[in-house]
Design a protein around this nucleic acid. Structure first.
Lengths: 109, 109
DNA sequence: TCTGTATTTCCAAGATCATGGAATCTTAGA
DNA sequence: TCTAAGATTCCATGATCTTGGAAATACAGA
């Protein structure tokens, strides 16, 4: 085998938008889905969850859960941290508060 | 002609959800469209606009503008008052504030 | 290296949405 | 009654979204 073009262990392949790049219309559209709004409410207590935990809690197959979590992450609503084979998902509360003050409060009553 | 089953001049045929019936996910999804978000921002100064005024301001054909305004109205974001052949559109700021305190502020900076 | 688990990606439906021209409706005014 | 203007509805088209099974990927542990 030739020298690897890409390392076997990628440090961080998960993409997140920078706080300043979070777009309001995108966030609104993303949270306009009941499944994703529910995920945000589950995460609102500040405790990170793994992907499967959220999928199970909502009664979704893994692929569907993963799809919604990708949209949330790409919109800048959540952060995913790789931890072994798990993905620990958390709400980007501080970033959202900085960019759109008051928004998270509206979502979580 | 037989007696009319419905009056020729309907007092109010335009439907709006009651304040308590406004759904957050629906509002979020509705405002997740750049066109509709822009309409809300135009209306945020409190001055009502007529349909054509908004369509023109956004460079939309009348039918497209009417479509977006219908979604905003049905979501409970705007109110339409018939005035002759015109429809005067306004933001339901107080109702939204009562139902989702802080939301309108988030939308309008 | 082999196996199992967590997660993502691929892919193909089906559903929903956005657009805009044409037709229709409604009302004001001549 | 006739006409014109404002607005909505109808309808077809294309785009985007959601779903979930199957396959692929990534990693930990035996």
């Amino acid at each position: 085998m030739p020298a690897m073009a890409t390392p076997t262990t990628t440090p961080e392949k998960i993409r997140h938008p920078a706080t300043e790049a979070i777009d309001l219309a995108t966030v609104m559209r993303t949270l306009g889905d009941p499944v994703r709004l529910e995920i945000v409410r589950l995460l609102a207590d500040g405790r990170p969850r793994v992907c499967g935990e959220l999928s199970t809690a909502l009664g979704l197959p893994a692929s569907t859960g993963s799809y919604h979590l990708r949209l949330l992450r790409e919109a800048g609503v959540t952060r995913s941290r790789a931890e072994g084979t798990l993905r620990r998902i958390s709400l980007r509360r501080d970033d959202l508060e900085q960019r759109f003050p008051g928004l998270v409060d509206v979502l979580t009553r």
